[in-house]
Amino acid sequence: MIRDFDSGDVVYLLLAARWTVALVVSATLCGGVLGFVVAIARVVPVAPVRWLAIGYINLIQGTPLLGQLFALFFALPLIGITVDAWSAALVCMSIYASAFLGEIWRSGLQSVHQRQWEAGASLGLTYRQQLGHVVIPQALRISVAPTVGFLVQLVKDTSLAALIGFVELTRASQIISSATFSPLTVYTTAAAIYFVICFSLSQLSQVLEGRLHVTR
């Protein structure tokens, strides 16, 4: 029997949106840690490490996320790890986020002037101290706005997890759509929920960009 799309379904979609948010937050945290390593690997004065990081970034940014999701979803069982859709999505989105965040933070690191490194060195700081006390604090300020901007992309990209069967907002709307047979209403509602999340983030990114620009 086909029922109508009612307020209960909207609540169901909102509850499913929690999983979208959960996926974004977890992927940002895991991807952030990994991305930090990638960013540092891109600037260290050891050439092979830099090449490895460049190769990693090219591989992730040069292939479709959907392909990464499927390859990983089928690859992990081969090495004996049974994955549910959530773990596959989380691992994949984290790797994906790390490549982009790594590049954003790398450009933040490199936009800190060379003289800052030299000033640190002339004060007798070691390489690690220069990085930790002089360069990273300044790079962080520059990177905040583009990082929030990337989160918008990440929120939208979590919709692909629906295609490996992870029930987040998009998968939930597919389910409701087949139950109510009113795809236009259902998908428009889902789009509206995405819009609220993404638009808030992109506005936040713009505000941060303006604010951090003025103080520099």
């Binding site: 939208k156 795809p183 236009l184 998908y187 428009t188 993404c198």
Partner: peptide
């Protein structure tokens, strides 16, 4: 509207939604 919603959902609206 287009920049703040996922392509996949836009695709579903065009392919499944518009026929209604």
């Amino acid at each position: 509207a287009l920049r703040n919603t996922p392509l996949l959902v836009q695709l579903f609206i065009v392919f499944f939604g518009l026929p209604t």
